[in-house]
């Protein structure tokens, strides 16, 4: 099992005729994902890598039964693309792009939730359920199937962290990039709830940052009596206050945004806190050991 995405998911790629869309469609297909359709307005009837291209998501869904979408279009067109996918019946829609206004993220999130579905992103590599399917552009070799659910605000950190877990024999049920922006389609609390309900996930690894409130949601979960064990790694311990560290949300504006404040809250809640990337594998192992008790 996994969260949101599995081998039965039927994926439609919006913007498949673009450079990134074509690359990602080929890459997801190579991983074994059922990439059943592409969409590019005005290009219906053609194909990319043998994948049929339609002029609209509705046409793609009608012809192929697609239920999952990934949207590779620039920020000014992104909301239109996500709304089209959601309203055509896709229950899971990823928008990996960065530089998206917060207002668009709010609308995308609300539209997906209103239909009972989920949006993943923005500013995220997407979501992978190792050995089953991938919806995004994360490097496939970093992952292997297993019992750990991984949640990450950072794409680059999730690749390196997942590879370390994989090399240590600690596979993953799903790895979700929730994104580096303040408003997310799936936030940390929601990702945790999904992993909590997934029987194949025995422990959760959360990769967080300075800034924002997601880490406190993780702490709230970790102290629940019925919580699955949580291991965490937060980066940005040495970032100075008031300076944006790449991600829109990685900004220390108050004490609650700092590494120390978040680590204190997570430790008090009973999470296994890795204080450096090198300590992550041991922390994940400890979380798994606790789940076996």
């Amino acid at each position: 099992m996994s969260i949101l995405l599995d081998a039965a998911s039927r994926v439609v790629v919006l913007g498949i005729t673009g450079r990134i869309g074509t690359f990602s469609a080929r890459d997801m297909l190579a991983y074994g994902t059922q990439v059943v359709a592409g969409v590019s307005p005005g290009r219906g009837g053609s194909n990319v890598e043998g994948i049929p291209v339609f002029g609209s998501v509705a046409a793609a869904v009608a012809a192929t039964g697609a239920d999952t979408a990934i949207v590779y279009v620039p920020a000014p067109l992104a909301l239109d693309g996500v709304l089209e996918a959601v309203e055509s019946g896709c229950r899971l829609v990823a928008y990996p792009g960065d530089g998206l206004p917060v207002r668009e993220a709010m609308e995308m999130r609300a539209a997906a939730r209103a239909q009972g579905g989920w949006m993943v992103g923005p500013n995220s590599p997407g979501l992978i359920s190792p050995g089953r399917a991938k919806l995004g552009f994360m490097p496939s070799f970093c992952y292997q199937p297993g019992p750990i659910g991984v949640i990450s605000r950072s794409g680059s950190l999730s690749y390196e962290a997942s590879l370390r877990l994989t090399q240590a024999g600690l596979g993953q049920s799903s790895v979700i990039g929730i994104g580096g922006d303040p408003v997310k389609g799936v936030n940390a609390a929601e990702a945790i709830a999904l992993f909590h309900d997934d029987p194949a996930t025995e422990a959760i690894v959360y990769l967080g940052e300075i800034g924002g409130s997601d880490e406190y949601a993780v702490a709230d979960y970790a102290q629940r009596a019925d919580a699955k064990p949580v291991a965490t790694l937060l980066v940005g311990r040495t970032a100075p206050p008031g300076r944006k560290m790449g991600h829109a949300a990685a900004l220390i504006g108050s004490y609650a945004d700092t590494w120390e404040s978040k680590v204190v809250a997570l430790e008090a809640a009973g999470a296994v806190v890795a204080r450096s990337l090198d300590a992550l594998v041991d922390a994940a192992r400890e979380a798994l050991r606790r789940s076996a008790r």
């Binding site: 794409g155 680059s156 980066v235």
Partner: peptide, 10 residues
């Protein structure tokens, strides 16, 4: 990458 750059700083 922002996350890995911060991890390396730390």
């Amino acid at each position: 990458g922002a996350g890995m750059t911060m991890a390396a700083m730390d």
